[in-house]
Simulated scan of single mutants.
Amino acid sequence: MKPNRWLRMLALGIGFLFLYIPIISLVVYSFNESQLVTVWTRFSTRWYAALRQDDELMSAAWLSLQVALLTAFASVVIGTWAGFVLARMGRFRGFTLYTGMINAPLVIPEVIQGISLLLLFVELGQWLGWPAGRGIVTIWIGHVMLCMSYVAIIVQSRVRDLHPALEEAALDLGATPIRVFFSVTLPLISQALIAGWLLSFTLSFDDVVLSAFLSGPGSTTLPLVVLSRVRLGLNPEMNALATLFIAVVSVGVVAANVFMQRAEKKRMEMAV
């Protein structure tokens, strides 16, 4: 084996170890009986049982899961429309403004976005009486504003790579533009939609800054609860909760990759 190949493998191994050793350590110590998260005593599942009794942590986790799911679906719908317009509608009047509005959440610091939305909701509450308070709806709106930009960029790049002859053939055969979009375009960009959904879910679930500005009493998300507890010291229950989420996310990512690989293989077979 050539020295350069050994060097590349060594660098790759160090990179993977740097990324995954902390995660593996967290999973291992979630089965530690000791209350000290850095001192191993013996194997136990006591913290998983204790996690079920922690109402604050479970409520926060359920709220974050709800917000993340709602954000992911809404961001995919809005972001797909926005990305399709960017890729297929050409330069129209106001195109520069439209592009800037889509890309703005990607470059504006989340602190500025959070303050702006907070002031907006306060003013709306005074003028219209809505929202009556900050909660799941205000958090969801803020997360959608952020995540739909990522989806739009992903969809835009995928739509631009599509060969227009596929859609033109469907139009020549009598399909309406809407039928072409749902029957031809949408299946071809399904991988981009799945990627955008997963990215939106992840960004929403672990967001701290926007959630801190847009949450209110009784609507504290999981990252905010974890952050507040970590300041007082590490809690073994957090290791257990993190391990559960790692397991769920890992299964979801593997399932998504399998689906995307099968879809790509099917697309290649149809192309041949």
Results as ranks from 00 to 15, higher is better:
S25P: 07
I24E: 04
G233P: 00
Q126I: 09
M270P: 09
L162M: 11
A11K: 00
F95G: 07
V137G: 01
R46T: 13
L198V: 01
N4I: 13
R160P: 03
M145G: 10
L7D: 04
S228Y: 05
I141V: 14
L232K: 13
A61C: 11
A192C: 05
I112R: 08
M9Q: 10
G90F: 11
I194M: 12
D206C: 12
N239G: 08
I141E: 00
S215E: 03
L224H: 11
T41F: 00
V27K: 02
L146E: 00
L63C: 12
S250T: 14
P3G: 01
Q66M: 08
F92Q: 01
I108W: 10
S34Q: 07
A175L: 13
I23C: 08
F259E: 09
P187A: 10
L17R: 10
L198S: 03
L65P: 01
T80Q: 08
M1W: 13
A255H: 02
P164G: 04
I136P: 03
G94M: 04
L51V: 07
Q191W: 11
V151L: 00
E56W: 05
A256T: 01
F259D: 04
A247V: 15
Q35R: 12
A212Q: 03
W197N: 03
I246E: 03
L203F: 11
A61D: 03
A212R: 05
L17I: 06
L70S: 09
I108Y: 06
P164M: 10
G94I: 02
R46F: 11
V159N: 06
L214H: 06
A256E: 03
V230K: 07
A82K: 00
G196Y: 04
S219Q: 00
A104D: 04
N103E: 08
V39I: 15
T220L: 11
D207V: 10
G216E: 09
E167I: 07
A82C: 09
F205D: 02
L86F: 01
I78V: 14
I178W: 15
R91W: 03
V37K: 04
G90P: 01
Y29A: 03
A195W: 12
S215C: 10
P236T: 03
Q156H: 05
F121T: 02
Y29D: 06
T45Q: 15
V248L: 15
A68H: 02
S211H: 02
L188Q: 15
I21Y: 12
L188W: 03
Q191K: 12
T185G: 02
A195L: 07
V249A: 12
L97E: 08
R267H: 11
L186C: 06
L70K: 09
F259T: 15
L199H: 05
A11W: 03
A49R: 13
K2W: 12
T96N: 07
P223Q: 08
L117S: 00
W81I: 14
W40D: 13
I102S: 01
S215P: 05
